[in-house]
Amino acid sequence: MSREFTARRIQLLAPSIELITDRLIDELPDHRDEFGVVDLVEHFAYPLPVAVICELVGVPEPDRHLWSDWSRNLTAGHTERLRTATPALVRHVRELIDRRRAEPGSDLISGMLQARDDSADIGPNGGPDGGPSNAAMSEDEMVSMTLILVLAGHETTAHLIANGTLALLTHPEQLALLRRDRALLPHAVEELLRWCGPVPSARLRYADRDLVLRGVQIRRGEAVHPHLDAANLDLRHHDRAERLDLTRKRAAQADHHLSFGYGIHFCLGAALARLEAAIAFGRLLDRYPGLQLAADPGTLIPGDRPVGWELNHLPLHLGRV
């Protein structure tokens, strides 16, 4: 799968992402309520990533509204909605696989099929050292990978866009810097990932032996819950870590924060998320220079810096349009 998510390959999606972003941004005034307020989560942050996933996977335009509904149902956490959405999405992915098997394209499913064919051509002992090569992906694994993309690539990117927009609007001096110098945009995305990233913690790990970690005794078999936020706000690695600073001097990009994980668990879709966020923030600020919050920030998130930062709504005034 890695070759389908290289930065160079993802960059080829930029024109499509820009078109999708521009369309959603142009439609925002149509979603204003009687007070002139529009919900950025509902009408921009959420629909953008699922539309991009559809573009990546190769979902035909007429079917994309179905994917939007299925994606919401998969991430809603309601058993009945899951029971309905999951089989429907699985059936649709299998249909797409059948179509791309007959008519390959430049989409992700075509790429997975090609990778499987390449692996099958190498044979069971075709590895570079004469050993076994990587096993070919089964159709079930292709379906599972596509569902993972929907789940992992939709909610997280949506929350990054919403969180980042709120952070910029509540830090007007940082927003002004970005408005004056768009070259800061890639740095802004990294700083927003560090400061208000959508994934605050990793999965549980279990100690395989007794150890002492920073003075704490951990017994073999005990669970440890790594909090990525703790690393992202670590004063030993970030000067004034609690401060949002789009001009922050940083080390290599991969070492700046842990919002995409680390090592072999580094997020497969990191390049796509970065590209979507940069386009989303840049286009939004260009189109609506008078963008303002339409609610007290304290009513949107519980506390100053909660462990989990996920906005259900982000009410905004668009300003003059």
Rank of each mutant, 00 (worst) to 15 (best):
S133R: 04
I161L: 11
N125C: 14
R287W: 03
D107K: 06
R179D: 09
V57Y: 08
D245E: 12
V199H: 03
R3I: 01
G298C: 11
L318T: 01
R94F: 01
H225N: 09
P289D: 08
E103T: 09
H313D: 08
F281K: 02
A278I: 06
A277I: 11
V216L: 13
L291H: 06
D208R: 13
P29V: 15
S2V: 00
F5N: 00
R3D: 01
L314P: 01
L235V: 13
E80S: 15
A251M: 06
S138T: 15
A76Q: 11
E95V: 10
R305V: 08
R3M: 03
H313Y: 08
R99H: 12
S201V: 14
V93W: 04
F35R: 13
P306E: 04
H317P: 00
T157I: 07
I17P: 01
R94W: 04
L192Q: 06
H154L: 07
L204K: 04
C196F: 05
G36A: 11
S2P: 00
D245M: 06
L275Y: 00
A294G: 08
E61Q: 15
G197W: 02
A254Q: 05
S259W: 00
R116Y: 09
G298P: 10
L314R: 03
S119Y: 04
S133T: 05
I25H: 02
H92D: 14
G282P: 01
A277G: 07
L28S: 07
I161V: 14
D118F: 05
G221I: 05
L244S: 07
T146F: 02
A7H: 09
D26K: 08
S133I: 00
S68F: 09
S144E: 12
L56N: 00
S68H: 13
D208I: 11
H159N: 15
A252T: 14
L96V: 13
A273I: 02
N125I: 06
V143C: 10
T21K: 00
L268C: 00
R64K: 11
L204W: 10
L311H: 01
N232H: 06
T146N: 06
T157E: 06
E155L: 13
A188H: 06
G131P: 01
E191A: 07
Q292W: 04
H92V: 05
I53F: 00
V321D: 12
D208W: 03
P124M: 09
L246I: 15
A254D: 14
E4C: 05
F35W: 10
D39N: 12
L185C: 07
P306R: 07
D286P: 01
L235M: 08
I53K: 00
I53P: 02
A176G: 08
A120L: 15
G197Y: 05
R274F: 06
E18C: 11
D296N: 12
G123T: 09
R250N: 10
D210K: 08
A188P: 02
E139P: 03
P302A: 12
L293G: 03
L311Y: 00
L318C: 09
T86Y: 04
Y288R: 03
P132C: 07
L166M: 13
N125D: 15
D234E: 12
G298Y: 04
E18T: 14
H257K: 07
L166A: 09
E55S: 10
W70R: 05
L175A: 14
L56E: 04
L13V: 03
V307F: 07
V189F: 04
G105T: 11
R32F: 00
H237T: 11
P315I: 10
I109W: 06
D63F: 10
A45G: 09
H65F: 05
Q217S: 11
L275W: 01
